[in-house]
């Protein structure tokens, strides 16, 4: 059974399709990079898989089931820019939010939840900053906090929107180490990635996306010059095998 299974997914915003007829299979325990130019629909794909957007057509199955039934098995790391970092809250608080779904209504996070959150912070080496206000963090530290928040979700499938965007080299290394340890415990990670240089060293598989799926599969097979040119060559996407 595949961790993520996308069939004929089409997502349209107002007039124009943002994603067109996407098919995708991701096996469990795979780190997959989603690569493509700006406006290629990378974030849209992630949001569609998370059920944040309603597709115009197609189906998405996570671990063989429709999204709503397995939503709690998915972890999400949004782009850093999507939230207000001046919000009056601390690092630990943000990480605890990852547990809000599991804690259930009305109940407050207790000692065991705090411990869990601290453990997640330890994994991203942020325990020392647990009580900092989030405004005082650097870009890399903000990203680590988001990662920690996803880690406490204890998901089976992680969707990350540009987890390495604008972070320092140390943070990048640390995040990649975490992604690799997630893989070794059988988790699946789909991450939007911008740096073409590092795709092959960081990820197992890659999805080349430009509104359509250009290619997907093991990096060694798919990440070729021809495919990249198809992905980035202007705004034109051509399907393989079209006569």
């Amino acid at each position: 059974m595949n961790a993520v299974e996308v069939r004929d997914l089409t997502v349209a915003y107002r007039e124009s399709p943002v994603l067109w007829d996407i098919d995708l299979d991701v096996a469990p325990g795979v780190l997959m990079a989603i690569v493509g130019p700006n406006g290629a629909g990378k974030t849209t794909l992630i949001k569609a898989i998370l059920g944040l957007l309603k597709p115009a057509a197609g189906q998405i199955r996570i671990l063989g089931k429709p999204y709503r039934r397995v939503a709690s098995l998915m972890g999400y790391v949004p782009q850093r820019g999507t939230v207000d970092w001046d919000f009056p809250t601390s690092v630990l608080d943000v990480v605890l939010m990852g547990l809000y779904g599991r804690i259930g209504w009305v109940r407050r996070p207790g000692r065991s939840e705090r411990r869990e959150a601290m453990e997640a912070l330890e994994k991203v080496e942020m325990t020392g900053l647990a009580h900092r206000q989030i405004r005082q963090l650097s870009g890399g530290q903000q990203q680590r906090v988001f990662l920690a928040r996803a880690l406490v979700q204890d998901a089976r499938v992680y969707l990350m929107d540009e987890p390495l965007q604008g972070v320092d080299a140390t943070t990048e290394r640390a995040i990649i180490d975490i992604l690799h340890s997630l893989r070794s415990s059988g988790k699946t990670v789909l991450a939007v990635h911008h740096d073409l240089q590092t795709v092959s060293s960081y990820f197992d598989e890659v999805l080349l996306l430009n509104v359509r799926r250009i290619a997907s599969g093991p990096v060694s097979k798919v990440f070729t010059d021809t495919n990249l040119r198809l992905t980035y060559g202007g705004r034109i996407a051509i399907i393989k095998g079209a006569p």
Binding site: L50, L52, V83, Y100, W105
Partner: peptide
Amino acid sequence: LLFWKEFKVLAFDPEFAHSLVL
């Protein structure tokens, strides 16, 4: 007070709140 933590995550990061199935 009753829905404090739900309102908090809603105010901070509504999309993440959605991914928590709230």
